[in-house]
Design a protein around this nucleic acid. Structure first.
Lengths: 239, 239
DNA sequence: CAAAGTCAAGAGCAGTGCTCTCAAAAGTTG
DNA sequence: CAACTTTTGAGAGCACTGCTCTTGACTTTG
């Protein structure tokens, strides 16, 4: 975090070259991620592609885990940017449209970058634990955006009351209230609970597709399937 | 593949010992899976635990991928058995109860065997592709059971009509009709579509929990959260 | 211009999947 | 029971992995 403690001293030709090399490594890392999967990420292979001996890479990246962290942050931010872009393209008051755009953006990015998606939302990499202080902020951008849409819709009175809501048990209501207070939201527990369900369901649907859980040709109309699922989920929270 | 062409000749002391050794290897494999993750599965480590040199293991398991396949089938069947057990414990006509039991069984097994769960529903293992002819049958047991419950409920007229159903687009309706015919179901497209959503959402919720997507202490009441989510999903399909 | 800092290379350690050869053990058969 | 056949385990070896350490060269800076 406090690596460059001098906020804006002078870039210098050296740090520029160094930053460029690190960026190249991340780029190659993403390619390897997409082609061979997260846990097959090899610093040696990256060094080869970089035209350099393996040990040289350690000058720029502390370890394989460090590279994984860099890729994690990079991927989270790319996903977050993609979501922001598509959501912001719609009117602020178009809550349902914004939710559907968010969902489509997640799916689109995931299908296009299955390796990175697997790193973020797939099985945890065996010996690796993400450093929370650097990954939580980028890692929560999508859910923040999602609850933001819900909250805005609720504040605008645009959420239609949903029927057949099961009661939220005491313990869960407490957790939800804590989340609401921490994020400064205005949503009732029932809506927040359904929002969490929508969140997990969205990624469940995307994961099924990206990880190949559907049969090879059970759902050729995957786009339509996903769209229909998201519309159903939108209805579930009254959007 | 057609190793034992004589269906039921004589077990023989040799094949018995061999089968036992393979069973031991699978058992150790499952332990390693749980402790170090799917892609860190090492035949050499298993050989060590087995008290044998690495090359000896290849006498029993063709390759690392073959062992992965064996573990995959084993895990699918364990999950299937767990689900069957819990579902069958309830009356045939208790459709909603059976669905909730199925969901709880999936979650329970997943939490208890995160390694195996990750192998089945997490990121695909880099160089590995499951042989469909041996894994599809055990791999579809849960969804078969789920649609079975839905179909039975529908045939019994126990599915309450759900409001606000988005229309199922043409292409998707075709896919769903094909699935329905192939499985001999009686469900209308709208219900089947929602059934698929429930399916993916169930595993989305479980994956979030098992893969640690929730913050470390955002939802201490995970049991209640899951239960509430499943009840909401049950309502979604009219159960 | 020389000191300080940075860099790539190479050797080396311990681990991996997998193949091969060879001798011992075990079961099967006459 | 002895001879034969099959199965088994051990060991060496290949190519790969992450990572560390030392060495020599190169660039930037005071």
């Amino acid at each position: 975090m406090s690596a460059e403690d001098s906020p804006a001293k002078k870039p210098g030709p050296r740090e520029r070259a160094r930053a460029q090399t690190i960026a190249d490594i991340i780029g190659l890392g993403r390619r390897h991620l997409a082609e061979h999967g997260a846990s097959a990420l090899s610093l040696r292979a990256i060094a080869r592609d970089l035209g350099v001996v393996s040990s040289a890479v350690y000058r720029y990246v502390e370890s394989r885990d460090e590279l994984l962290t860099l890729l994690l942050i990079d991927a989270y931010n790319e996903l977050g940017d993609a979501v922001d872009r598509d959501v912001d393209a719609l009117a602020e008051g178009d809550f349902r449209g914004r939710f559907l755009a968010l969902a489509r953006a997640v799916r689109h990015w995931a299908v296009q970058e299955p390796g990175s998606y697997a790193l973020l939302f797939g099985s945890p990499v065996p010996g690796y634990r993400a450093p929370g202080d650097r990954t939580t902020e980028p890692g929560t951008r999508v859910i923040m955006r999602l609850v933001g849409i819900l909250d805005a819709a609720h504040r605008a009175g645009a959420l239609t009351a949903v029927a057949g809501g099961a009661v939220v048990p005491q313990a869960l209501a407490g957790n939800l209230a804590a989340v609401r207070d921490e994020l400064g939201l205005d949503l009732p527990e029932e809506v927040l609970a359904r929002g969490v369900l929508v969140w997990t369901s969205l990624f469940g649907a995307v994961s099924f597709e990206v990880f190949g859980q559907y049969g090879p040709d059970t759902f050729p109309a995957r786009e339509e399937l996903f769209q229909h699922q998201m519309e159903t989920l939108a209805g579930l929270v009254g959007l």
